[in-house]
Structure formats: C-alpha cells, structure tokens
C-alpha cells in the first residue's frame, strides 16, 4: 500500500487518492497556434519512464487538493511531494522529452 504524504493532510493510504499522470505538462497557451502533430503530443503523449517520475495526485477522499510527487515507477518509492506552485524538487527537467516527427 503506497502511503502518499499529502502536503496538506499528511500521510494517507493510496486508496484516498486519484492519480493524475505526468506532472508539469501545462495546457498550451495558445492551442490554435499548434500544428496537429504538436496538439497530438499534448493530447496523447506523456513520458513513461521506468524510474523517477514527476506525477500528479489528488487527495480525493480528503482535502480534494491536487499536488505533485516524484515517485520511482519501478520501486514505487515516493521521494518528494510538493505543491502545484512549487518547482520540481529533485532538479530534473520539467519538459517532456522532445519527440521527432511521428512516422506512418
């Protein structure tokens, strides 16, 4: 049972939370300025590392607040939790991996 330390409520079992996938993927400022390929990147592509991952959680059964966490997707160990207005604490890059033009 993962125990996730909500920045507002403290450590709670994972069953109290909703998962939100990769963190730091902001909604584009101007969607109309994006090509279809770029828009597809935003809609469908997220990093999927086997290792350290910045991700979002909502404490849905508690304070209902969203926050970020850095967790190892292989060991499931949570190394950091931080509020949405804080920078990713482990210093790793925020931006998703750039992707080449998609193939056929």
């Amino acid at each position: 049972m993962m125990v996730i330390p909500c920045p507002f409520c403290g450590p709670r079992n994972e069953t109290e939370y909703t998962y939100g996938g990769q963190a730091h993927v902001a909604y584009p400022e101007n969607p109309d300025a994006l090509t279809d390929e770029q828009w597809a990147q935003f809609l469908f592509y997220r990093d999927n590392p086997r290792g350290s991952y910045a991700e979002r959680w909502q404490h849905s059964a508690g304070c209902r607040k969203w926050f970020n966490a850095v967790r190892n997707t292989h060991t499931y160990e949570i190394t950091h939790v931080y509020r949405l207005d804080q920078a990713r604490p482990d210093g790793l890059p925020k931006a998703p991996l750039a992707t080449k033009e998609v193939g056929a």
Partner: peptide, 11 residues
C-alpha cells in the same frame, strides 16, 4: 466535479 477541480487547481 473532478474535472472542474482539476482545471481550476492545476491549470
């Protein structure tokens, strides 16, 4: 509700 909260808080 989840949807509204997500946009409100995260974006």
């Amino acid at each position: 509700l989840d949807w509204l909260e997500e946009w409100s808080q995260t974006e």
